[in-house]
Amino acid sequence: MARYEEVAADLRQRIDQGEFPTGGTLPRYEDLTAHYGVGRGVISEAVGILEREGLVRPVKRTGIVVLDRPARRRVTRDQTITRDPRRGYVFPAASHPGEAWQVHGRPVADKQPATERVAELLDVEPGAPTVRRRRVTSPAGEPPFQLVDTWLSDTAVQDSPQVAEPSTGPGGYLDRLEEAGHGPISWTEHLRVRMPTREEAALLQISPELPILETVILGRSGRTSEVLEVTVRAIPSDRVELVNELQRHRSASWPTSPVETA
């Protein structure tokens, strides 16, 4: 085991034992180098490991903050979209039936430069001013679990101006789009793992060294097949585990058929 791995293992154990409580900070770099008898580079490598594990996050003018670690949520993924009479469409998510969730800060709807990813999916120029709806949510009492950005096409906003407002009424912005003549909307989902931007890491209260799970949902107009909305959900990778039920094809039925010989 490399020396920086030994230091990381010891710090991890001390965190787990409560010596460095959640919300507190690790000792200063100078104190850590003296305690472990190593150089600053070894401490930096050790802290980097803890960052990638979601245990700590360097905060400017504060120090190396010890993070709260909610239990990893096991999510059984399917492809079913349901509907709640009060909330509108409900997509596969990490919430459990009847579970209360909270919003961190205030939901925002404004114009922002389209990222390269969003520009590609909405078929606009990168950096083009685009309406973005943003919210940060989590189960009640837990730190931020996910950052959700919904980007809306010019067509969506022109046909249903209310979707550009923070509050869109019962059923949400999707109901407003379908009422404007785009129903039934159809969706496709993309999943990938990537590193967070600095802004995403700050909003999710995680280290920039911790990968995130990104799910992107594209909503297409039932009338024109145009992409009306791109919803990007960013979830820290230490918060969720996706589970899929695998099905046997008829070619994989059991008992297996005898192998035919020539």
Rank of each mutant, 00 (worst) to 15 (best):
E189A: 05
R69N: 07
T80D: 09
A93S: 14
G63N: 08
A201H: 01
D123G: 06
D175K: 13
T150L: 10
A100T: 14
I235F: 01
A34R: 13
L147R: 01
Q146T: 12
A93M: 07
H96I: 11
V66A: 04
P208A: 12
V66T: 02
W151C: 05
G37Y: 05
T224Q: 04
E116Q: 07
V227N: 03
G169V: 13
Y29F: 09
S138H: 07
R192D: 14
G127N: 13
D175A: 12
A164V: 11
P211C: 09
G181R: 06
T188F: 04
I49P: 00
T215A: 08
G127L: 12
E51R: 08
A234D: 04
E209G: 10
R223P: 02
Q205K: 13
E178T: 05
G18Y: 07
G183S: 12
P184D: 09
A46G: 09
P236R: 11
H96T: 14
F91K: 03
S253W: 12
V232E: 02
P139I: 11
G219C: 11
D16Y: 07
S207V: 03
V59T: 14
P139R: 15
Q13F: 08
V103D: 03
R192P: 01
R106Y: 14
H104L: 11
H249Q: 11
R52E: 09
Y29S: 07
W151A: 03
G18M: 10
R250N: 13
R12A: 14
Y36D: 07
E199V: 07
T33F: 00
R117N: 13
T261Q: 08
T137I: 14
D31S: 15
P113L: 04
G24R: 11
I206K: 00
V227Y: 04
R72G: 08
Y89W: 15
A156F: 05
E189S: 03
Y36Q: 10
R52H: 07
W254R: 14
P161C: 09
E142C: 06
L121S: 07
V240S: 02
G169S: 12
D110N: 11
E209P: 01
Q112F: 15
